[in-house]
């Protein structure tokens, strides 16, 4: 990654990453839904989601 493109920090200057010119749609919106069963926290994450 060139220095010019390296992300910088700061709230007023949002981080920018190199992005491919891939997006062609004017607008996208998406939302999916399922039953909520998350139990992880910052001290533990469940990798396999088997629940039976």
């Amino acid at each position: 990654m060139s220095k010019q493109n390296q992300p910088t920090t700061g709230v007023t200057q949002p981080l920018r990453t190199v992005t491919p010119a891939r997006i062609v749609e004017e607008v996208i919106a998406q939302r999916k839904s399922c039953s909520a069963d998350g139990v992880g926290l910052s001290h533990y994450i469940l990798m396999d989601r088997k629940d039976k």
Partner: peptide, 17 residues
């Protein structure tokens, strides 16, 4: 991740405004 049991699409839109 989006193939879980019971996963439903509520909104899925892409196109022009």
């Amino acid at each position: 991740w989006d193939d879980a049991d019971g996963m439903e699409t509520v909104i899925d839109f892409s196109g022009s405004v």
